[in-house]
Structures are given as C-alpha cells and as structure tokens.
C-alpha cells in the first residue's frame, strides 16, 4: 500500500499542475466575494516583518524593530480533476500590502481586475501593474445594485485599455457570472495574448 502510494506520488509530480489566477481591484470592490462564490475559501495568511516592508506606514514608534504584521489573503481552490487545480488569490486591497503583489504574480496565468463603475479610478493601479509586467488580465465590472451599467466601451476608454483586453460585466455574487469571467480570462491568457 505504502509503496503504491509513493509510486503514485512520483508519477503525479510530473503531471500535477496548479494554475494561479489573481483577483485584484480597489478596496471593497468584491474580491473576497468573487473568490467565495466560485470556490471554497481557505484560510491563508503570511507574516511579514514591518521593519522590512512597511516602515513609515504602520505606527511602530517606540516599539522594537522586529514586529510582524499578518497579511490575510483570499485563497480559493477549484479542483478540475486530481492533479489539476485553479487557485484564486485575492490581492490585498490596501496600499501597504503592495509588496505582496510581486510575490503573488510570479507565474500567474492571469488576473481579474475588478472594477466598480462608481469609482473606476481605483483599479488604475492594478491595470498599470499587470500591463507593466505583461500579465494577461480581464477587467470585470462588478455591477453593484443601482450602479449605472457602463457600456464596456466607455470603461475601455476610461481605463485607457487596448482593444484586446476583455471587459466583462459581472455580478460577483452569481456563480454563473464568475464562471464567465474566469473562462474569458483563461481563454484570453492561453489563446489571445497579443503578439509582442
């Protein structure tokens, strides 16, 4: 039994694949909701040294230098089959956690940038970030109740996006809607990467 299990593990190592997708966007735009709608959220956090990363942001005056802060991440897993998963990571919304983005974005297949039409400008930093690093992204406009339904073209112009970047209107509370966003992203990332 033990032997068979080990053999399986060795074989699996060749083919196991975890695909990473980031969910970014401004404060309170619906990142956590989106991850929770489509996957089981699992607790994940990290400890970072404030002295290393966040100097001048958190008030650490009068306290010894080696203080850690806990950064909680939205983390969801979608199992496609044994050995093939999609992992969703919500990037922390607060500015002082920007350093986490570099860590999160390494090797990512792509990103969903969530936008709220009432404050579109809040997703500029995320759009810039992914554009600069050549990480494929889709803009998902979370249509909060009562929010004006922007035409995708207006959003495209407001964000200064190139023609290839998909823009999807969505409701992050609806599973079908989130599935739509993710399939659009996966297809864009795999098939639609504009030629350099």
């Amino acid at each position: 039994m033990g032997y068979a299990a080990s053999e399986q593990a060795t074989a699996g190592a060749v083919s196991a694949l975890a695909i990473k997708i980031l969910v970014a966007g401004g404060f309170g735009v619906g990142k956590t909701t989106m991850v929770g709608t489509i996957s089981e959220i699992r607790p994940l956090h990290t400890e970072e040294l404030l002295s290393e990363r966040g100097v001048g942001v958190d008030d650490v005056s009068g306290v010894e230098s080696k203080i850690t802060t806990t950064v909680a991440l939205d983390f969801g897993r979608i199992t496609i089959r044994e050995g093939l998963w999609l992992y969703l990571f919500g990037t922390p919304g607060q500015d002082r956690f920007w350093f986490m983005w570099d860590e999160l974005s390494v090797g990512a297949l792509g990103a969903v940038v969530l936008a709220d039409t009432r404050r579109l400008q809040e997703c500029f930093p995320a759009v810039d970030y992914f554009e600069q690093r050549g990480i494929p992204f889709v803009v998902a406009v979370n249509c909060f109740d009562g929010a004006r339904r922007h035409e995708p073209d207006k959003v495209r112009r407001a964000l200064g996006l190139g023609g290839a970047t998909p823009i999807v209107l969505c409701d992050v509370r609806e599973r079908e809607s989130v599935k739509d966003v993710l399939t659009t992203l996966v297809t864009y990332a795999v098939k639609g990467v504009p030629t350099e």
Partner: peptide, 18 residues
C-alpha cells in the same frame, strides 16, 4: 503558466469551469 497549458489542459479547464 501559459507554457504549461497545452490544448488538452486548456479544454479540461474550460470544461471543468463550465
């Protein structure tokens, strides 16, 4: 990531998501 996803995996992922 994009290099590790071949046509078969891509199809599997789409089908799985849907």
């Amino acid at each position: 990531a994009a290099q590790t996803i071949d046509e078969r995996i891509y199809r599997e992922v789409l089908h799985g998501l849907r």
